[in-house]
């Protein structure tokens, strides 16, 4: 299949990469750019482990055709740290044990980031609703809710 050049902003830096029209953003990130933070859990948009922010909005990168992000801004878990400092959410997840195997964590963090950007002080129920599309088989939901609440409360 014919390859095309895709140019977009990835974690603050412009990248150009050759892709085919059928490749998803997840394929391009993981296989071509070796940005392996976003995980391939189902390739079907149902687990949420591949979630990235596209112009600030959470999207399933496995359901996003790569060429549709031309010229746009993509943030993955690799882009959360600023100047070597962990993001507040990363600190809270780490210190409060809001993960076990960690495979869903990159997706959880991106959705939580988007939630706090829209609603800096979400209620417990608002967190549960907003995060509901992301699955964690280790069952760390309660710890994730608490970590997000702790960040919202200014503890980090």
């Amino acid at each position: 299949m014919k390859q095309q050049v895709l140019t977009f902003i990835l974690n603050g830096e412009e990248v150009a990469v050759l892709v085919t029209p059928t490749e998803t953003l997840l394929d391009v990130l993981r296989e071509r750019l070796q940005i392996t933070g976003p995980k391939r859990g189902c390739d079907d948009g149902e687990c949420g482990a591949c979630t990235v922010l596209l112009d600030g909005e959470p999207v399933r990168s496995c359901l996003t055709l790569a060429l549709t992000v031309e010229g746009r801004t993509v943030t993955t878990v690799e882009g959360l740290m600023v100047k070597g400092e962990l993001d507040r959410l990363q600190k809270a997840f780490y210190e409060r044990g809001a993960f076990q195997c960690g495979f869903c964590t990159p997706g959880m963090l991106m959705v939580a980031k988007s939630l706090l950007a829209k609603n800096p002080n979400p209620s417990r129920d608002e967190i549960r609703s907003y995060m509901a599309g992301n699955l964690c088989r280790c069952g760390s939901y309660e710890e994730i809710i608490e970590a997000i609440q702790a960040v919202a409360a200014g503890e980090y």
Binding site: R30, E31, Q34, T36, G37, P38, K39, R40, T76, V77, E78, L80, M81, L86, Q90, F93, Y94, E95, G97, F99, C101, G102, F103, T105, P106, L109
Partner: peptide, 21 residues
């Protein structure tokens, strides 16, 4: 105490087998 290797999990740098290309 937090996980010894937990920074890897929250930064997406822990290497899982499918991350090997």
């Amino acid at each position: 105490m937090p996980r010894y290797d937990g920074i890897g999990q929250v930064t997406g740098t822990t290497k899982y087998v499918d991350d090997i290309v």
